[in-house]
């Protein structure tokens, strides 16, 4: 730690004496983000691609505003404090371990910059064709390719794992997520999850989401 600081200081002095701008704030904040991510890697994996055994979703390349929003919710108890929210209760103390707003911002920037990867399907029995019909509701907010939309606070879905999409949709429907009175954006998604008539529709819409990819 101290060694790192000393090296950084020496580098920035060297850089400035050669007429470069000293190690800028952005590089510094990424170093902090990288260090903080060591903890997250325990469950989300070192590349942020998730780990089903730990119930930890893929987060690499998720939108920074959404990451910030969710970590803030875990910290304030809007998410991860429900009696039946097994996975959320695991994540909440991790979010609370970030000490300052700057730490949150740094780790968010680090995660958002990780390259996403389309995870392999783990569920069977969903029909993407039927799912496409259901998805007509979703695309209004999550975008036609599930790429997410900041104006509507709707996150990217197209590189999430199918098992995670399923638990989240089930959680929204059961009121485990999106029912906290303070959770404004969750409250927007909860009624949307109710537009899916049954468990099979969840499987179908997820099967369709699994066919989507970022096409920008």
């Amino acid at each position: 730690m101290t060694t790192r600081l000393v090296i950084l200081a020496m580098l920035s002095i060297a850089a400035s004496s050669f007429g470069f701008t000293p190690a800028n704030a952005e590089a510094d904040s990424n170093a902090n983000g990288k260090e903080l991510y060591q903890l997250c890697a325990q469950c989300h994996g070192k590349d942020g691609l998730g780990n089903q055994v730990a119930l930890a979703p893929a987060i690499a390349g998720q939108r920074d505003w959404y990451l910030l929003n969710q970590i803030t919710k875990f910290r304030s108890g809007q998410r991860g404090t429900h009696f039946y929210d097994i996975a959320g209760m695991r994540m909440r103390p991790m979010a609370l371990s970030l000490r300052t707003d700057q730490d949150v911002a740094d780790v968010v920037a680090y995660v958002a910059a990780m390259p996403p990867e389309k995870p392999a399907a783990t569920l069977e029995g969903g029909d993407p064709e039927k799912g496409k019909t259901h998805f007509q509701v979703c695309l209004a907010c999550h975008g036609p390719n599930g790429e997410g939309m900041q104006a509507l606070n709707a996150p990217t879905l197209n590189h999430s794992s199918d098992w995670y999409l399923l638990t989240q949709l089930q959680n929204f429907r059961a009121g485990i997520r999106g029912t906290n009175p303070e959770d404004v954006t969750g409250a927007i998604m909860r009624p949307m999850s109710m537009t899916l008539p049954d468990e099979q529709a969840l499987q179908d819409v997820i099967a369709y989401i699994m066919t989507l990819s970022e096409s920008k």
Partner: peptide, 13 residues
């Protein structure tokens, strides 16, 4: 009116 937000969201489920 619930005193605790925790109780409120648990009640919903």
């Amino acid at each position: 009116k619930h005193t605790s937000t925790v109780a409120a969201n648990n009640a919903a489920a």
